[in-house]
Every structure is written in C-alpha cells, then in structure tokens.
C-alpha cells in the first residue's frame, strides 16, 4: 500500500472528480438526447448533402462521445496527479 492520504485531501480529490463526472454527463446528455429533440428543424440545414439532424445522429454525436471519453480520461488523470493519488 502507498502512504495514507489525509481525509481532507481525499475529500478535495473526490469533489473535483465529482465535478468532472457531472460535466461529462451533461455533455453526454446534450449529445445523446437534447440535440435530437430538434432533429426535425435541424434537418432543414443541409451540409454536403447531409441534413444536419440526420448527421448528428449518424456521426456528430458519435464523434462527440469518442472525443469526450479521451478528454475525460486525460482530465481525470490530471486531477489524480494534482492530489498525488495517481498510480506510480
């Protein structure tokens, strides 16, 4: 086991982790559901032949998901390092 981490430090680490969790889930919710509520109106905008509402469900949201996970992983890693609780 590594050296003990003080409860205050652990608490601070967890509150930052929790904030990151809520931010990530908010982005997840927006791109999973919220954008697609407006699909019928977004479809009026056409880019390279893709109606935008269709494009968001077929590619746009998926790209956001992939980028979001990598961003989250890097961000969480920084938090862990900041509080000295990352793995060696």
């Amino acid at each position: 086991m590594a050296e003990k981490i003080s409860p205050e430090k652990a608490e601070a680490h967890w509150s930052k982790t929790r904030a990151l969790m809520w931010t990530s889930l908010a982005i997840w919710f927006l791109s999973s559901f919220f954008v697609h509520f407006f699909a019928p109106s977004l479809n009026k905008i056409v880019i390279f032949g893709f109606p935008l509402g269709f494009y968001m469900a077929a590619q746009g949201s998926l790209i956001i998901f992939v980028v979001l996970i990598f961003w989250f992983a890097i961000k969480q890693n920084k938090i862990d390092e900041e509080f000295g609780v990352a793995e060696d």
């Binding site: 889930l25 999973s32 469900a57 949201s61 998926l62 979001l68 996970i69 989250f72």
Partner: peptide, 24 residues
C-alpha cells in the same frame, strides 16, 4: 431510415457512462 439511428446512438453513447461512472 433516421429512426434506426437510435441503435447507432444507443450502442455507442453508453461507453461514456462506462468510462465516467464504472470502469476505473
């Protein structure tokens, strides 16, 4: 058509939850 994209979205977006809430 468009409605089938529910499967495309549903079978990808769950990984965000895996990464953020559970896997680590």
């Amino acid at each position: 058509g468009y409605d089938g994209l529910a499967f495309v979205l549903g079978w990808t977006g769950g990984y965000v939850l895996v990464a953020v809430l559970l896997a680590p």
